[in-house]
Design a protein around this nucleic acid. Structure first.
Lengths: 182, 182
DNA sequence: TAGGCCATGTAACCGGTTACATGATTAG
DNA sequence: CTAATCATGTAACCGGTTACATGGCCTA
């Protein structure tokens, strides 16, 4: 999905600043299936306002930076609803870890071990984060998605812990020649 | 991961043409965690050859197009091994479906149903494909990764089938106003 | 005879990232 | 005193996609 639709979807549930949108995508309930940076948020917001799909107001707070708060217009709502009616494109998934794992036999055992252990840590942290969102979850769609994330990632972790040693065995069985490359 | 490393990884296990590389990434054992098109394969291959990391030879077959077969050089091997020694970046995952699901309450029930059913079909097909690769799987790293994929996607399907009706209930409970948008 | 597969490549375009610029406030 | 948080934005760059060009063989 493009930045445009994502921002429209966020603004459809609540008004927000560019900064807040970024936060939702980086730490909030959207974070696990979305990826976006300031460099695309602010220009997209400006374009959306240009087209009349969102509008903004500025709030000034003493001693704090101004906040430019965006909200959806009727036109924005219409475009969002239209986007929602299109069949979603299949997920995009890219994993450097799996490439590393696939080539485990060519890699060195310690590197592979670090990779898998860091992955376990990383995913554990992500599951914890989603679980914490789940605790104060008002919105039914958001809960459903969060539960989805917890379910899938837990099963991911299960595999990783179960088969960790198998992967290390594959890495360990390689010849010693590749150590030289590091 | 970038096209460069991916191609190096593929060429490290077997020599291949650009066409074959694309096939491996689209239907083969790499397909579920990788995404790449001709438009980046051929230029990358040319660049890699320029830099001396791969070399090529041309095979002519009567009545068939020429095949330009690339294979790794010692330099390529070194760069690949070095890339492999770096800690892998976290997965990139983007899901339009989950955005749709999150906004299910704003969407129309039939659209949501189509989305979830198509997803079930799509993932089922992908699991079947991986399972078929698994049957004739020589390479231990490749097997490990394939089993990983089957495990995670199966648990994904489990959730989808289990919670399908919950999501439809969320969509069904919305007001009728959004039907107008389609 | 139409469409799919094999096979290689190019060029325009685009969406998004990285890094930078700016600056006040608060917490450690 | 340092680092983080809040807050908005720009510009250069880049990796990759889409669509196109070409063309013969085989299958339905």
């Amino acid at each position: 999905m493009n930045a445009r639709t994502l921002i429209l979807a966020i603004l459809n549930r609540q008004e927000a600043t560019g900064y807040e949108i970024r936060k939702m995508c980086a730490e909030g309930p959207f974070s696990y299936f979305v990826d976006i940076s300031y460099g695309s948020i602010y220009p997209t917001l400006a374009k959306l306002e240009d087209e009349g799909l969102v509008s903004s107001r500025i709030e000034t707070h003493a001693g704090k930076p101004d906040r430019k708060i965006y909200q959806m217009t009727a036109g924005g709502q219409a475009e969002f609803l239209h986007a929602l009616s299109q069949p979603p494109q299949p997920d995009k998934f890219k994993s450097e870890f799996l490439l590393t794992a696939m080539c485990a036999a060519q890699g060195n055992r310690d590197t592979v071990m670090r990779a898998i252990d860091e992955r376990i840590e990383h995913i554990t942290a992500e599951v914890d984060m989603i679980r914490s969102h789940l605790e104060e979850c008002e919105h039914p769609g958001t809960c459903w998605v969060a539960e989805y994330g917890v379910h899938v990632m837990s099963s991911d972790l299960e595999f990783l812990k179960d088969k960790r040693d198998d992967l290390l065995a594959i890495a360990g069985s390689g010849s010693a020649l590749r150590e030289a490359a590091e």
